[in-house]
């Protein structure tokens, strides 16, 4: 799965977990915190994304990205190893 598809999956999961964001444009330079998501919602979105792209990794390996684009880059890198 390419990086932009992974980004689209992340954005899709954000809109599913927080339906209030369904209509709001979301760009990759934004972070989940900037979108108003709390830590529980952020972890749920990461978990759902892992499931959707078929990755099984410890969650702590996905700590660190500062925005959605960086998270997509990291997931993309992990999916190739």
């Amino acid at each position: 799965m390419d990086r932009d598809t992974i980004l689209a999956v992340i954005v899709g999961q954000i809109r599913e977990v927080v339906p209030e964001l369904a209509e709001r444009p979301i760009v990759e330079t934004e972070s989940m915190a900037e979108l108003g998501l709390d830590s529980i919602e952020r972890s749920e979105i990461i978990m759902n994304t892992l499931e959707a792209i078929g990755l099984d990794l410890p969650m702590v390996q996905l700590h660190g990205p500062k925005n959605l684009g960086e998270l997509a880059d990291l997931l993309h890198a992990k999916s190739r190893t």
């Binding site: 830590s39 529980i40 952020r42 978990m47 969650m59 702590v60 700590h63």
Partner: peptide, 12 residues
């Protein structure tokens, strides 16, 4: 602390 990292470690 870091709320995200703590939650991730808890889940793992």
């Amino acid at each position: 602390g870091d709320a995200d990292l703590s939650l991730m470690a808890y889940l793992d």
